[in-house]
């Protein structure tokens, strides 16, 4: 190997050019230790990410480029699967459902979490119990939640229809309609995740210096005014964080709609509540069309990227640029 000429301009002191002289035995190991150890310490995460994160993603892309049937042969088809996905009405129906449920689940959820956190931030009796209480839905098994909600919203003997009956509303077939099924599933999602987001907001609220509030109070600012002009701006990074995490969660919505439809991977008689993840699953494990399912999952990945980015930019704009 020849050394390029311009190497000479480097300061030579940094690396001795000659072979190292005799040193005490431990020294080489010590040097190695100092150089390598940090990498070794952080490596488990990266190795795991490589094995369980990067490799499957790459492999999924590889599968997506094939006509890959479970019981059949594998044939390279290039971008054909992606072309089919992009022109597949069932896929876009799933995207619409996912976005729809994301919006009607996430927006009220984050707003309500904010109100809840604000309430929990005040001095009150039994504050610890109340704070722990909002976490209770989180530790409930998601399958149990879905089963209970499925019964609440059942057509013939459901609790919700029973209550609505008091007000003269006819029995509603919640699973049959697009909006009604979205509402029922969103109720499930919100019940589970509002407390979690409220706790995150609460933690962030408590890191806001109290003297800001005191100063504002002395200046005569009302409670609402303090919330709008102090709490909310100070919470902005946290709101961005929760919005992005909710975006990812919302785009991957799977268990709730699946169990709401009693395990029907098609998500209702007209696919009215089939999400993209369910559609991916249907193609992989019902139709056994792995290539197509992989293409769907890559499209989902792209959607989440775009969605998170839009969310991030929008919240940044709304919060004002600083």
């Amino acid at each position: 190997m020849s050394v390029p000429a311009d190497v000479r301009v480097r300061p030579r002191t940094a690396r001795p050019s000659g072979p190292p002289g005799p040193r005490p035995r431990g020294s080489a190991l010590t040097r190695l230790d100092v150089r390598l150890s940090p990498y070794l310490f952080v490596s488990p995460y990266f190795l795991l990410f490589l094995v369980f994160g990067l490799f499957p993603m790459g492999y999924t892309l590889w599968v997506a480029l094939h006509d890959w049937e479970l019981l059949g042969d594998q044939r390279f088809v290039g971008l054909e699967n992606f072309r089919l996905v992009l022109t597949d009405p069932q896929f876009w129906n799933a995207v619409l459902n996912t976005l729809g449920m994301f919006v009607i689940a996430t927006v009220p959820q984050l707003l309500f979490a904010l109100v809840l956190a604000n309430a929990l931030d005040r001095r009150m009796r039994g504050r610890l119990v109340a704070r722990l209480g909002v976490l209770a839905p989180m530790v409930t098994s998601i399958a149990a939640v879905a089963i209970v909600f499925g019964q609440l919203f059942s057509r013939d003997f459901g609790f919700v229809n029973w209550v609505l009956g008091w007000f003269g509303v006819d029995r509603l077939d919640w699973a049959a309609g697009r909006w009604s099924s979205w509402l029922a599933i969103s109720a499930m999602v919100d019940w589970r995740w509002t407390g979690y987001n409220a706790l995150i907001y609460l933690a962030a609220m408590q890191s806001i210096p109290r003297d800001l509030y005191e100063a504002a109070a002395i200046d005569g600012a009302s409670r609402a005014r303090r919330f709008w002009t102090i709490t909310l701006p100070m919470l902005r990074p946290t709101i961005v964080f929760t919005a992005i995490v909710s975006t990812i969660g919302g785009f991957q919505l799977f268990t709730e709609p699946l169990l709401f439809g009693n395990g029907d991977m098609a998500g209702g008689s007209l696919r009215q509540f089939q999400t993209v993840t369910m559609y991916m699953f249907e193609n992989a494990f019902r139709r056994f069309d792995y290539g197509y399912a992989s293409a769907v999952s890559w499209m989902l990945f792209m959607l989440i990227l775009v969605g998170s980015l839009l969310n991030f930019l929008w919240l940044r704009r709304v919060g004002g640029t600083r």
Binding site: F52, T60, V245, I248
Partner: peptide, 24 residues
């Protein structure tokens, strides 16, 4: 953003692994 990007990637990858692994 980087942090969330990584979370996102690993989450998605985990889901994909799960799906592929389920077959095996």
């Amino acid at each position: 953003m980087r942090r969330s990007h990584r979370r996102l990637a690993s989450r998605l990858a985990a889901a994909v692994t799960l799906a592929l692994g389920a077959a095996a």
